[in-house]
Design a protein around this nucleic acid. Structure first.
Lengths: 350, 350
DNA sequence: TTGTAAGCGTTATCAA
DNA sequence: TTGATAACGCTTACAA
């Protein structure tokens, strides 16, 4: 016979605390206590409870537990794209960092759309997560409001992959300045003597971080008196896009570019491969550099100059930032993570 | 003044249904009804409720909702590694497929460890997810029991990335036979006339799917009278591992291998690049083929022969399988997904 | 060491 | 069209 519920609304087939308790000859609270503070339960009782749990296949219901205790161990995370290796590694870092602390990851992708980010954020917020992780610092007004509400309720919020002086909003940024990277890329090429160059932006129109790098690249180069063209890659496979763009680059005149920087390594590798196919010498006739230090970059001939990023570490640092804020009960503190300009053969580097 | 709760255990700062109701001058159930069946609430009331929701920044608490309704919209998924592009794309497909149906993805990675899979499964099961997705068909006994319990409670379970005749267990497999792929790889090389070949296994010892392909490869080749050596790549970056293995391959004698198949495209690309560096002609002196059809494979010179996989589609199909089972209330039906042997230049193909 | 009572925020059921 | 009441499965606070 069922304990307490006559004509239950509908059983879902899963064992409950009450059923385990009944099987063990105790009340629910004792089983609950066993699960949280086993040392406070008599050894004999422990045995009976363990047997009952095994027999029933009991799995504690976390919805109920969280509701009752008001403590969440969910972290909600939003990334533009899970398949993109750049974010996938960050998610893995996040996952690893959280797992150790017993947190779980509720994840969604936005497809680089701020509107979808807002929708997903709304949906995820309903879980009243212990922390929220988003990608980048740009959000719709609705998202901003939601994040502020969360912050006020004591939920730390972390923005990954971006960083800029931005005092106060309460959101912790864990990332780096894409402006600084763009400028450094330009400086690298300027130092090598280039006076006419191109920046090849990503075909993903909404990837504003790539645009920011491009803007800073162009501004820096122009400030130094160089000539700059900004192109946008076609929305194809990145390698193919890079190959195509290389054709466009070679058609530019007055002045012809002698160097090109790309929004990511795959684009740059495509261009490098195409250059080789056409018998163009890299870096002598055209210097090339990418962004991201994907594994393939080092394998190219010549190796691709690029910007090394702490992809995995970003996720890990994001997790730690969140955990720290949770532990100390304070607003999360952001941090800048280091990137490295890797001068390799494709720009005449070491 | 608070409605009902004097000396509440502790407020978490977030607005509740009750507070919204109070602000709108109705009771909680009316607000709840507005959220689920707005047409059954009077227009004037709707207005007041909407204002109240906006004013309070109310976000419905899903733990409470699920607990009360007994309906979950969470799907729990376990993959070996989120950073690996092969699984990342599958997760993206899963995410996309579920999002449309309003489901959310609780995800964890196992690092290819069955023990960690079991732990994570236990943790995720506590959410009483509507469906469970795991990778592969091998699990610890504890995991098997847990999955069976879930199935008996009506929770569909899908195994991705694997498929074999396996009547009955109730778990739906969505994938393909790695044995068949391994055999097809061997046949491809046999057809090209090779009589001595190598299979280069992944350095990830627990990737049993790669091992299965290798076993089938070796068995098929040997059955045809060919000589086969199985090597294991070092646990380095896959490209570097491939480069190193190429050195090992060239040291093999009696008979020297004229072809090699690899556990994945990155390994094979590393080997191909190394072959080029050494001035070895591919495929004339050594034919090479990979697995996975990563974007880089097509870009190689010669293009890498490989096995094309429905990475994204696997996730999508997994989601659909789950949704179908949920909708029809029946056990999920598995399906085999097609792969393609892509004969390209590195094995002398078209 | 164990138990009782109340409540977490929501939804199902039935009544008005 | 709205509301009162009783769950959902668990935990906190307090008592025995």
């Amino acid at each position: 016979m069922d304990t307490g519920t006559r004509q239950a609304r509908r059983g879902h087939g899963r064992a409950t605390l009450k059923q385990v308790a009944q099987a063990a000859g105790v009340t629910a609270i004792t089983v609950s206590r066993y699960l949280r503070e086993p040392h406070r339960v008599a050894p004999a009782t422990v045995q009976r409870i363990e047997a009952a749990i095994a027999a029933t296949g009991y799995v504690p219901n976390k919805q109920a537990g969280l509701l009752a205790s008001g403590v969440s161990n969910i972290v909600a995370a939003l990334v533009p794209n899970l398949a993109n290796s750049i974010f996938a590694e960050t998610v893995q870092g996040l996952s690893d960092g959280l797992r150790e602390a017993g947190f779980e990851l509720l994840i969604a992708s936005t497809g680089y759309s701020l509107e979808r980010e807002a929708e997903q954020l709304q949906a995820l917020a309903g879980w009243h997560p212990a922390g929220i992780v988003v990608t980048g610092r740009r959000h719709t007004e609705a998202s901003q409001r939601l994040l502020q509400t969360a912050l006020q309720a004591g939920t730390p919020v972390v923005e990954l992959w971006d960083w800029q002086d931005n005092p106060g909003s309460g959101v912790a940024q864990v990332g780096f300045s894409h402006e600084a990277v763009g400028a450094a890329m330009a400086e690298h090429l300027l130092r090598a003597g280039h006076r006419s160059m191109a920046y090849v932006d990503s075909g993903v129109a909404e990837d504003y971080r790539a645009h920011e790098r491009g803007l800073a690249f162009a501004a820096t180069a122009r400030a130094a008196g160089a000539h700059v063209v900004v192109l946008v890659g076609p929305p194809a496979d990145a390698f193919d896009a890079g190959r195509q763009v290389m054709g466009d680059l070679l058609r530019l005149r007055a002045p012809e570019p002698t160097a090109a920087a790309f929004a990511n390594d795959n684009l740059a590798c495509g261009a490098l491969l195409e250059a080789q196919r056409r018998g163009l010498r890299v870096p002598q006739q055209m210097a090339l550099m990418g962004f991201g230090d994907f594994p393939i970059a080092r394998q190219m001939q010549p190796p691709l100059s690029t910007v090394g990023l702490p992809r995995y570490e970003l996720g890990l640092a994001g997790a730690q930032t969140l955990l720290r804020a949770l532990r100390d009960g304070e607003a999360a503190q952001g941090q800048q993570l280091p990137w490295t300009l890797l001068a390799r053969g494709s720009t005449g580097g070491s």
